[in-house]
Design a protein around this nucleic acid. Structure first.
Lengths: 381, 381
DNA sequence: CCAGGGGTGGTAATCGTTTACACCCGGCGA
DNA sequence: TCGCCGGGTGTAAACGATTACCACCCCTGG
């Protein structure tokens, strides 16, 4: 048993190469009953009475093929429902037409829209997408990179929060273009999607200030995350611009999860001097905050205002609907694909290193006047 | 311009074959400066002083290779960070080691967990995953199928709500194993994941009945969906079992979206005889319901009880946390991969046609006693 | 000492496609 | 009429792996 037991068909190599076991019915030896004939370019060529080169040229729309022949070829192709074998094409052409997309975790609502957008745009340009999620596990990250390389992706979008440099080396070594969010190594073939956190966050702070809030808390993301740091910095700067100086005890560090938001809010509620509003580094945190406020029987927005960040889909339907700052995942995805395409098809669009993504405030119902003020206005609402 | 304009690198065929444009630097003609040498099995063989056959056998763990040679080979492989080219392997072995996964929409919170589970289990067994979402668009579905076939997947999990038969024909024609949820065509190579909706739904109804509810509404999914019909049927049967007969006006048809839930609840609130609880065909509907109840200023669960279905992740953090019926996406994914593996590696596990998935009640805080009853109990809570 | 055989390793065919190159054929100018 | 040119088509060599088959080596038994 052991190494060739039935269920043990996968065999890890030093770092995980998988053994290939041929499918039994590959040869299709004897049975000539039905149509065991392989459906390849040769079959098409034979049935259309042309050479395989002509079939290939027809499929690739080379303009010199005789239209009459082309028509015959197309007819046979349609008839047989023939699709060319991408692996063979890739092998000889050196172009796999696959982009890799590595995300932190698919189940984090931030990512599905990103993936959707990436898929849409990539497919539109004739690329396939290999998706991989790392679940914040460096081992999985290494495995993802390996999968990408094995399948010969032409470019990789690394949309994960943080990554170890040595792994990138493997991609760089093979001249595989990469695209990052916010920050990435300074190398040829690497582009970076710069998100303008400040714009949206300033709008958010101004919105709160306009409502009369002066005591604004902020629940940041993990300090090791560049994007989280940027958001906090943008908040501090915006507050200053509005003449607001948040008390240090109002700046909490969350971890971009629901539970993190819940915990941070719990601490916040113990402050001697209670803030009247809180901005969160992302929507999941904000939802955790709403939850904690619900537990504490505090009404949002009448007693406390909350602003999120990201504008994930469910922010529309929290109770109450969440005021938040939109960062378009679709724009992000589109820019990522554009960057990779630019790097791959370099001749056409000169590769650009940076792409800008903007953010902006979306006002819903989780923000209102600070408690105890302007009751007359609240009544008239 | 037109057909050969720069940005027009994609070229649609009758049904969408994409032209391949070779990357310029494919040949690596002159520059022998750095190490433009291709990293293939030949390189390894040469550096390890063995033949390519030995390298291949080493990687595939064929037991007859001399351990000393194997060691030398592994060392070179490690040294150079070499990974075999999957496309070449697939081409000759006839095994792509790719499974396709077609879902309705990634942004529907039901699917990410499914995808995550599928990826986990597939990777664990050495398969790559090709994900595609149809967005309920038959054209996209056709395109997805084509992508799967072009990339030579060895099996496809079709986890979408409904599919047109003719498209399946293309897969069947190529003997590609398929797996469906609930219902699928009766064919060799097709397996079906049977979800036992009844078990969980009965638990839900019994839970409500035990709390004292007699007037229970149900918001169904789209009538054309098999899974939605099954859920409604399970509800009706379970109600009957508990001696409850829901008024016809309490049975609404939603569409498995938030908005559908909102609308259905709106109608429900206009009933002459108001129900005291509602079960929903899925969690999104239930969240829509919570939202509508919030708008109507009705407290959940004190004035109205709500039960969802699916137990999507965010059901934990709705306000209040949603009592729902768990259908494990992870189990579903695991079963799907198992079914496909069984079909592909038929020799080992005899292919099974049906796999069972169970459902069960998860009690959270959106259910309580009907309004106006047992106040003393509610107080003591 | 030689024949036979088992265990290793190498050579070459193969997978399905692209594409460089050769070839064919017709038209046109000299 | 012949040569040249050039558009269209076919032939064959890649691409990077697997694997059938064969050659070789060495050991052992007759």
């Amino acid at each position: 048993m052991g190494s060739n037991s039935a269920s043990q068909c996968v065999d890890f190599w030093g770092r995980g190469i998988v053994a290939i076991m041929p499918r039994k019915s590959n040869g299709s030896k004897k049975r000539e009953g039905q149509t065991p004939e392989r459906l390849d370019i040769r079959t098409i060529a034979r049935l259309a009475n042309v050479s395989i080169a002509t079939v290939s040229r027809t499929m690739n729309r080379v303009p010199t093929v005789n239209p009459k022949l082309a028509k015959r070829v197309w007819e046979v192709i349609e008839e047989l429902n023939y699709f060319p074998n991408t692996q063979a094409r890739a092998l000889v052409s050196g172009r796999s037409r696959i982009f890799g997309l590595i995300v932190s975790e698919i189940t984090n609502p931030f990512f599905p829209e990103l993936i959707q957008g990436f898929e849409d745009v990539a497919i539109e340009h004739g690329y396939e997408v290999l998706i991989s999620s790392t679940n914040y596990d460096p081992k999985r990250m290494a495995q993802s990179i390996r999968r990408m390389i094995e399948r010969k992706v032409e470019g990789v979008a690394i949309m994960t929060f943080g990554i170890e440099e040595p792994l990138l080396e493997q991609l760089a070594q093979r001249n595989i273009p990469m695209v990052f969010v916010d920050v990435g190594p300074e190398r040829p073939g690497v582009s970076v999607l710069k998100v303008d956190y400040h714009h949206g966050i300033r709008q958010g702070v101004q919105h709160l200030a306009a409502l009369g809030h002066r005591k604004i808390a902020f629940i940041a993301g993990p300090a090791r995350l560049h994007s989280a740091k940027s958001r906090l910095a943008a908040f501090m700067r915006s507050a200053k611009e509005c003449g607001i100086t948040p008390a240090p005890e109002w700046i909490k560090e969350g971890d971009h999860t629901l539970e993190g938001g819940t915990r941070a809010m719990e601490q916040l509620l113990e402050s001697k001097d209670l803030p009247t509003a809180v901005m969160c580094s992302n929507d999941m945190t904000a939802i955790g905050v709403l939850h904690q406020l619900y537990r504490a029987k505090m009404n949002v927005p009448d007693e406390f205002s909350v602003i999120g960040f990201d504008n994930i889909h469910i922010a529309e339907v929290t109770i109450p609907p969440l005021t938040t700052i939109r960062m378009s995942r679709f724009d992000l995805a589109r820019a990522a694909v554009a960057a990779l395409r630019a790097a791959v098809e370099e001749s056409e669009h000169p590769a650009q290193r940076e792409y800008n993504i903007t953010t902006e405030l979306v006002v819903r119902e989780s923000t209102s006047f600070p408690r105890g003020t302007m009751m007359h206005l609240r009544e008239s609402k």
